[in-house]
Design a protein around this nucleic acid. Structure first.
Length: 426
DNA sequence: TCTGGGGTCCTAGGACCC
DNA sequence: TCTGGGGTCCTAGGACCC
């Protein structure tokens, strides 16, 4: 059996942890640049605040009802996420935990059976809440898709399930699937949901009963077949090896305000490269390809319509590297080629791909100077930036003016990761 | 009148996830 | 004035190989 543990309104829960006065109050957290609402508490949901909805569209409801608003505080969320995951590993074993996202983890529950399964699940929920202060929901089922179904119902039907639902009999599975619209299945997005409704398939149970051949033709080939199997309790999405590294690393950001000058674009791209390279080194990888993209608003007229147009340009590197300066040297010419004056730039990004482990770099026979020489320097820079403050040490190309920096006007303190922002008890 | 069979690798784009 | 960021997997199609 597999479990999925999901933190309730994670970002909001993190904020509330240090603001007990907000316990029963509506709270929302905004995306970068204070653009969209990415987390909301039940109280905010009840007021009609939409998920993933633009902040400005909900501003009226928010202000009228005194909803507490926060900018994203990733230092805080990242740290609390680590505590939740450590607790889970403590409870079920290091190897049994697959961290799926910042606020979710799959657990291999095969060591529990019968009534022990239910007890263990309740214990997980209670212990995480007690140790970290973050409320979670636990769903258990024979496959990942079914555990997701259970998790969603456990959260929805809070009184009946108390946040824990174990689907361990065919009857429970049938009942759960009948209560779940196809739209709410993990792996069914907008496109497939529309198609399924069109065919008269509205809930999980109906989809479960469709033949695999049908799914192969109508739901993206093997993806559809896998979905049907998973719904039938046949697990075929395995637990991931926790040691697996990422295959691609991206840093992309909306600019704090529209940008027109090439100099600003260069600064931003260099900064994003530096950030991406940091992530690369953190997982002991190097990149063999780099892509840069810029998004313009698309129209040259004075209209304000949001009509983003993006252009990409990439190159392969002569040798795999994680050296920020080498990556910047390759990225900037791409940005320059992409740039056309007269446009209004909204967003930019850098994508590193073709990742290979640092320990397995294929050196380039024809390169006079190899690209790995700065290892000690890079390590030192990473250590300083990590232990002090982001960007204490930065590359000149990243600039000093930073006209393009994102807005984060409502960020709370980094209570758990900065000495000078510690929570004070008076 | 008429032109094989069996592969691999790469890229772009779609769909999905949180 | 105004709409996030970071990923994964799969497929189709083109280029190329013998």
């Amino acid at each position: 059996m597999k479990a999925i543990v999901d933190c309730n309104s994670f970002y909001c829960s993190c904020e509330r942890l240090f603001r007990p006065d907000l316990r029963d109050k509506p709270v929302v957290v905004l995306s970068n640049n204070d653009g969209c609402i990415v987390s909301r508490t039940d109280e905010a949901k009840k007021l009609g605040v939409g998920m993933a909805a633009p902040y400005y569209q909900n501003r009226e409801i928010i202000e009228k009802n005194g909803v507490a608003v926060f900018s994203s505080n990733y230092n805080l969320y990242g740290d609390l996420s680590m505590r939740v995951m450590d607790t889970l590993r403590d409870l079920v074993g290091e190897e049994q935990v697959e961290v799926y996202s910042v606020d979710e983890a799959f657990l291999d529950m095969n060591r529990f059976s019968g009534s022990a399964l239910q007890e263990a699940s309740v214990n997980i929920k209670e212990t995480v809440e007690q140790w970290t202060g973050i409320a979670v929901s636990v769903g258990v089922g024979p496959s990942k898709v079914l555990s997701k179904v259970a998790n969603r119902l456990s959260k929805k039907d809070k009184l009946g399930t108390k946040g824990v639902l174990v689907l361990d009999t065919p009857e429970k599975i049938k009942d759960a699937l009948e209560r779940t619209a196809v739209d709410d299945l993990w792996g069914v997005g907008r496109q497939y949901a529309m198609k399924l409704h069109h065919l008269g398939i509205d809930n999980g149970w109906q989809l479960r009963n469709m033949p695999e051949d049908w799914a192969r033709k109508n739901m993206g080939g093997v993806v559809g077949v896998r979905m049907i199997k998973e719904l039938n309790g046949l697990s075929c999405i395995p637990m991931k090896d926790p040691l697996e590294t990422k295959k691609m690393i991206a840093t992309t950001r909306m600019f704090g305000q529209p940008v027109y000058e090439l100099s600003d674009i260069r600064e931003a791209i260099a900064t994003y490269v530096a950030r991406a390279a940091e992530k690369l080194r953190r997982q002991f990888s190097t990149a063999t390809a780099i892509q840069v993209f810029l998004v313009t608003n698309g129209t040259r007229s004075g209209k304000y319509e949001y009509n983003p147009q993006s252009r990409y340009l990439g190159c392969t590197l002569p040798e795999a590297t994680a050296d920020t300066s080498v990556l910047i040297r390759h990225a900037l010419p791409l940005a320059e080629q992409l740039y056309q004056s007269g446009y209004k730039y909204l967003k930019g990004g850098v994508i590193l791909s073709g990742l290979v482990p640092m320990a397995a770099i294929q050196t380039n026979l024809f390169l006079k100077e190899h690209l790995q020489s700065n290892k000690a320097l890079l390590e030192a820079v990473d250590n300083i930036n990590f232990s002090h403050r982001d960007d204490v040490v930065k590359y000149v190309a990243s600039g000093l003016k930073r006209n393009w920096k994102m807005r984060q006007e409502l960020r709370s303190k980094r209570y758990t990761t900065r000495w000078n922002e510690l929570y004070k008890i008076s």
